[in-house]
């Protein structure tokens, strides 16, 4: 099962993840997003991408193939980071 954690200090309660998730995994409680149904998460990482505060973390997600990346560019970035 996918585990989702929300950094409550970083979350600004915008509710984008709540609106975007087709499986209603999140709910806003006291202006903080809470994953109430993580078992329904299919790992699309849409919420992860749109979260302006980058407050979400997913564990146990199958990473889909990313053949669109430039291997050389990624190697260069890895050397810098």
């Amino acid at each position: 099962m996918i585990e989702i954690s929300v950094d409550a200090a970083a979350c600004n309660g915008c509710g984008l993840c709540v609106k975007d998730c087709p499986m209603q995994v999140y709910e806003l409680r006291d202006e903080v997003s809470v994953p109430i149904r993580p078992e329904n998460c299919m790992g699309c990482l849409s919420c992860h991408e749109i979260c302006p505060a980058q407050a979400l973390e997913h564990r146990g997600v199958y990473p889909s193939k990313r053949n669109y990346i430039d291997i050389r560019v990624c190697e260069m970035i890895n050397r810098v980071i």
Binding site: C44, L45, E49, V61, P63
Partner: peptide
């Protein structure tokens, strides 16, 4: 198409 995401689509 129900939902599209960067890692998976429903």
């Amino acid at each position: 198409i129900v939902h599209t995401g960067p890692n998976a689509c429903l």
